[in-house]
């Protein structure tokens, strides 16, 4: 019950292209539907592939990577589930049953890839200090490597050794490590936010930071980032309106008649 080398290579190339599609164009190859269909086509059983892929696709329609969150890798799950189902000749539902735990397990490789790319971000920081923009550019291109490896390695290993490897891996990595990794993935965005706070004049404008936080912390489910941003925009506009008023009429004191509506307000607000 093994897959030929040729097929493993073709599927590896496919998942590499698919993960690049997932993080860029999102045309379709990244979806479980395509994963199942392509695998089925390559292994000579398109119908099973379509069934596995379509079922997984419909199961995961609501699962989207909002804001770059990691979601189970159902694409790779779909590829491997379809392959195992065709190999074992046990039909689509067998493949679907395998695809889900595989997708869940591979959440970890996705997290690792996203962590690994921090390395290139820091290299880029170093080159930015030197003003070396060519080297900064290169780092983003290197970033594709962890992405591609995170999909190719599981597919290559999984198809080469068969499904026993999935349960073996599951029992090999200690649970505490998996939990720790998952939590680290959850709290690491704190760093990006903290860097942003260092960049913006937070000491001067801290009240707005507090307002933003409180809106989402308490409003959470009933409120949205869009809502907070609109409030932020309104506060910014208010600030600009009040700050802007005194400077404009100074030079145009003689043309009051042309902006009568505004000048009524001006008299009230000018206090300097």
């Amino acid at each position: 019950m093994t897959v030929s080398f040729g097929i493993i290579i073709v599927l590896c190339v496919y998942v590499a292209l698919a993960v690049l599609d997932q993080i860029s164009l999102q045309l379709g190859p990244y979806s479980p539907l395509f994963g199942g269909a392509i695998t089925g086509l390559v292994m000579g059983d398109l119908k099973t592939g379509l069934m596995v892929g379509a079922t997984l696709q419909l199961m995961t329609l609501g699962v989207a990577t909002f804001g770059g969150a990691t979601v189970p890798d159902f694409l790779t799950g779909s590829v491997m589930g379809t392959a195992y189902a065709i190999l074992a000749n046990k039909g689509a539902s067998y493949g679907i049953g395998l695809a889900v735990p595989i997708g869940l397990l591979l959440t970890q490789t996705d997290i690792l890839a996203r962590m690994a790319n921090t390395f290139f971000q820091h290299r880029a920081d170093r080159f930015a200090e030197e003003g070396n923009y060519r080297k900064v550019e290169l780092q983003n291109i290197w970033g594709t490597i962890p992405w591609i490896l995170s999909r190719i390695l599981p597919v290559a290993i999984g198809l080469f050794f068969g499904q026993s490897v999935v349960s073996a891996i599951n029992s090999f990595i200690p649970a505490w490590f998996m939990d720790g990794l998952k939590t680290a993935g959850l709290i690491l965005p704190a760093m990006g936010i903290a860097i942003l706070m260092r960049y913006l004049p937070i000491k001067k404008y801290f009240p707005f930071f507090i307002i933003g936080f409180v809106m989402m912390a308490y409003g959470g489910k009933n409120f949205s980032i869009l809502g907070s941003a609109l409030v932020g925009l309104a506060m910014a506009a208010i600030y600009v309106i009040f700050k802007n008023k005194p400077t404009s009429p100074v030079t145009t004191s003689g043309t009051d008649s042309s902006e009568n509506d505004d000048s009524d307000d001006d008299e009230v607000e000018i206090d300097e």
């Binding site: 942003l196 809106m215 941003a229």
Partner: peptide, 8 residues
């Protein structure tokens, strides 16, 4: 800053 606060 409002959005940064809301991001957390």
């Amino acid at each position: 800053l409002t959005v940064v606060g809301a991001l957390i």
